[in-house]
Write a protein that binds this DNA or RNA. Structure first.
Lengths: 244, 244
DNA sequence: ATTAAAATTCTTGTCAGACAAGAGAAACCG
DNA sequence: CGGTTTCTCTTGTCTGACAAGAATTTTAAT
């Protein structure tokens, strides 16, 4: 692999660019698991940067589980199974298709989270859910849109599903979506009437969960997500997901 | 925040430890979005390490979207919505509960992926799925267990669902699970009879997808995942998920 | 006094050079 | 030929240095 080809542009930091280039090479399959990278000094020479920069770049790749470095040997490429991170980068918030796929993903997760929550919730979780609903109502009365309570509702529900992996991931996914929602609501504030409709959607989910009715929890949550997607102008969430 | 409390142990690299400590502080809420960290020089002093180490630690946190650094200002804490990575670290492969949660997660995703694939697949994707099945059969005849083809089947199916976020994430999740499966099969190779049963499970999914029957695709895939979990000795996948 | 311009001062980004520790490779010795 | 010692390479860490950029302060001008 000839690293000299990587002529570097000045915009991101050098370490950024080197990391991007090398990780690109690795994911593109230019190296196999077990291969070793040239030594830091050599890389520094080939990229025409200092060893400091190379080290910072490699540090990231190690952190991501792409590399592992041993003294005397150098940095060895790890197997894919060692990869430590999942990134939802380069999503184009403006792109309705991307947002649609994100909503589809969210729907798939949240409908089953609601179903699980219906069967696994504790009493204290239910009372916190109820509090979130009350808070949302109060917020709407006071003229706000209750986003904070909305988000809290979903977080508590995820907790009630008692699968930390699910909950953690939903949190990550939600962050991406909430940026958009927040943005939309800033430009086009919801009128109280609509806000009340949203509140009702949450109430339906709550009732289903409180009644330990997994199927109903699933379907009401799905409707809620679908409506939420519509409110964001996303129409592509597929029927299949919306049905089941 | 008093960084001096972070007395550092010699095992991981210093940068590792510093990064861990600071990121812990941040996720634990010791800093709010917009706060700025002390300058690298100051941090170096407080941690009792060189600036090099601090820089490498901060580089990772920046990469993860926890920080952003500006000249003259320093490193500012970013909002949670900026976080760029999801990690499924510290899963205890040995722990059947953790593995159960992972399987639960996988079931939730794959059943809907199968349903979507039933509605969105292209002809070429179906022929590749079919090839995977044939390959699996051949592999079993030759005495292997057909893991590679098994994995390929799931990957192609995910592609057929036409939601890249879903597919990418499933890939990530699967890696974690396949490490375990691979391990199990090395210790306790599947006998051909069982392998054929697994093959049949895949065939059922294939038929449903080929027939564009989303509901059937969902249920057959779910049964497959459930059986797979059982074969790994995981019994905790919850009824709710298994039903719908 | 108010505003615009210039000098100052931090902080990050990058570089260069240094050395210890560990691990493999090579040389040496029995 | 096998085992031990020495050598050498690479990473991990430290130090000191300087440019560039941005905020702050000072200075100058109206």
């Amino acid at each position: 692999m000839d690293f000299k080809k990587a002529r570097i542009l000045r915009s991101k930091s050098l370490a950024d660019q080197v990391a991007e280039f090398i990780s690109g090479q690795i994911t593109r399959g230019a190296f196999l698991a077990g291969d070793v990278l040239p030594s830091e000094t050599v890389l520094a020479g080939e990229f025409g940067v200092s060893r400091t920069v190379i080290r910072e770049a490699l540090a990231r790749l190690k952190y991501d589980g792409l590399l592992e470095s041993q003294k005397r040997t150098g940095a060895v490429i790890l197997d894919h199974s060692e990869r430590r991170t999942f990134r939802l980068d380069e999503i184009d918030i403006e792109n309705k298709d991307d947002l649609g796929r994100l909503y589809e993903f969210r729907g798939i997760l949240e409908k089953d989270i609601a179903a699980l929550a219906a069967e696994r919730h504790s009493e204290s979780q239910m009372s916190r859910l109820s509090d979130a609903l009350l808070g949302m109502e109060r917020a709407i009365d006071e003229g706000s849109d209750g986003s904070a309570e909305d988000l809290a509702f979903h977080r508590i529900l995820a907790e009630a599903a008692r699968n930390s992996y699910l909950a953690d991931f939903l949190k990550y996914l939600d962050r991406k979506i909430w940026v958009v929602i927040h943005d939309t609501r800033r430009s086009f504030p919801m009128d109280p009437e609509l806000a009340r409709l949203v509140l009702d959607e949450h109430r339906e989910v709550y009732e289903a969960v409180a009644g330990c009715d997994a199927e109903k929890a699933r379907s009401t949550m799905l409707r809620h997500i679908r409506c939420s997607a519509c409110r964001q102008g996303v129409l592509t969430v597929h029927q299949t997901v919306l049905k089941g």
